[in-house]
Amino acid sequence: MAVSTFFQRWRSAAWLGWQVESNWADPALFTLYIVARPLAVAAMLVAMYWAVRGRAVHEAAFAGFYVANAFHAYANTVLVGMGWVVFEEREEFETLKYVYTSPIGMFTYLFGRSMVRFTLATISTTLTLLMGWFVLHIRWDWALVRWAPLLVTLAIGGVAIVFSGLLLAGACMVMTRAAVTTLEGVTLALYLLCGVIFPVDLLPVPLQWVSYALPFTWWYEAIRRFLLGAGASQRLAALTDMQLLGAFALVTLVTVIVSRFGYERLEHRARALGRLDQTTLY
């Protein structure tokens, strides 16, 4: 496929994503939604932390969790969103079969559709960090931010999110109504397992190994270290910057390979079962 054709198809899928995400409400309500939602989530986190630790919101540990929580918007919105696209297209719009039998290719389509969600996640993360900076005084020293490894971390994280989303989209093709609860479960499981709001060291040992197999654990740890100067996990603190980035890259590479082949197997299974045009919500 020519690059121009790929771009044309990707752009139209991104355009559709924007229409679907933004057109359900009037602009004022939509703006309110994209501002209010992340701030509400951040406020909940602050309330939870206050309840557990008193009013010590300035603690370094809280800053780490707050920042990871801000970046978790990408997993919530983009990764889970790719699964939602499949479910929504099949069950609500009933258009999945027309997209699937067109030459756009599901990867291009899902990648394009997720672009708007990526933008929304970026807005959400930025707003949460701004609230932290101005309201909760969760601040970092700009002079100490290590930009190069931070940018590499963000780039690798983007790849991990897109490919994990692809695998989830494949799973949603096979699943029927269970896809709804699965998608909600994935959001919560990642929140729990990847050290968003507490160090992974606190998890039972078997779950720690699950945690280390997930790229987001490394992502949040690397963001904390390169932005704030320190991570949350004592065990991962023993790694050098290069070791941390190397492990993150390796886990992401494995995720890419597993997701790529896993998606193909799941799509094959969905086609074998006749699920691609099957409406299961009734």
């Binding site: 054709t5 198809r9 139209s12």
Partner: peptide, 8 residues
């Protein structure tokens, strides 16, 4: 229009 774009 969107489907025409999917088909290139």
């Amino acid at each position: 229009w969107m489907f025409s774009q999917f088909y290139g």
